[in-house]
Simulated scan of single mutants.
Amino acid sequence: MQYQPLDATDAEFIEDILLKYGDDHSVLNLSELDGYFTALVSGPVQVDIAEWFPAIWGGQNPDWDSPDEGKRFIELSVRHMNALATQLATNVQAFKARFEQTEHQGQTLTLAEEWCFGYLRGVAVGNWPELPAPQAAKLQVIAFCAEQDNFELPADLDVAQHRQRVEAIEPAACALHDYWVAQRQG
């Protein structure tokens, strides 16, 4: 098993494949895939590749141009999942979600919508049961951001509030991971 994080070439390959084979029902970029995998490795049970892989594509596996292309995508996906699982389990302070960046009125803003949307997709595929109130509140931090339309930021965006909400996402994801780890061990 490889636990090495993706490098820039690997990330670009994944992005290209998601664009090439994706549609309106699939994971569309690496940020969304990162959120998806974070939820999968954080959940109550391990989800089999036979369930999580087709869900990337909206339920239907791609008709690959070549077997090598499909094999490489799967290997990189599994490697990324393993790296996330290892990081969340052993070095949670270093956990960094793959959020996107944009310019808004001359400022760089972090966008977390796609990552959060992917996380919720992972929660659904992982079939998470109802959470106790403290953990449900953590999940709501992520769900709220997934519901935001960050493609066109409003001119009157409260930048400070936006940043606070985005800054709360990684700690919420880590807390949910820790909760499920404790449940699995208990």
Rank of each mutant, 00 (worst) to 15 (best):
L111E: 08
V125S: 00
N150L: 07
L28Y: 12
D156L: 00
V166L: 06
Q105S: 13
A182C: 06
K96V: 05
Y119E: 06
F73I: 01
C174P: 01
I14F: 01
F73N: 01
A168E: 05
L76T: 11
D24W: 04
R165D: 15
C174G: 01
E113H: 12
D48Y: 00
N82L: 15
V78T: 12
Q135P: 02
E113D: 13
F37C: 04
F99I: 00
W128Y: 15
R163M: 09
K20I: 06
A89F: 07
Y179M: 10
V47Y: 10
G22L: 06
Q87S: 10
E69A: 06
I56H: 01
A173G: 13
R165K: 12
G35N: 05
A39F: 09
Q93R: 13
L176S: 02
P54E: 04
F37L: 15
V166M: 09
T90V: 09
L28G: 14
A172P: 13
D178L: 09
H80L: 04
A112W: 04
L6E: 05
L76W: 08
A97S: 12
E103R: 08
Q140R: 14
E114A: 15
W64P: 03
E32N: 04
A168C: 01
P171R: 11
C116I: 04
G43Y: 00
L139D: 03
Y36D: 01
P154R: 05
V27P: 02
Q2P: 07
E32W: 13
L6A: 12
G22A: 08
F53A: 14
T86G: 03
L157Y: 07
M81L: 15
V181W: 10
A146I: 01
D48G: 01
D149F: 10
W115F: 15
D23S: 14
W52R: 07
N91C: 09
I56K: 11
L19S: 12
E100F: 05
H80W: 12
H177G: 00
G43A: 00
E69C: 05
R72D: 05
S26V: 00
G186T: 10
V181T: 14
Q140M: 10
L19H: 09
P54C: 02
E75R: 14
V27M: 05
T9G: 06
P5S: 12
A172N: 11
Y3C: 08
D178C: 05
E130T: 15
M1I: 08
R98L: 02
D10L: 01
Q60D: 13
Q46V: 14
I74W: 06
E130H: 11
R165M: 15
D156Q: 02
P44W: 12
T90G: 06
L111G: 09
L19M: 12
F144P: 04
S31Q: 07
C116Q: 07
F99M: 07
F151A: 09
K96A: 13
R79Y: 01
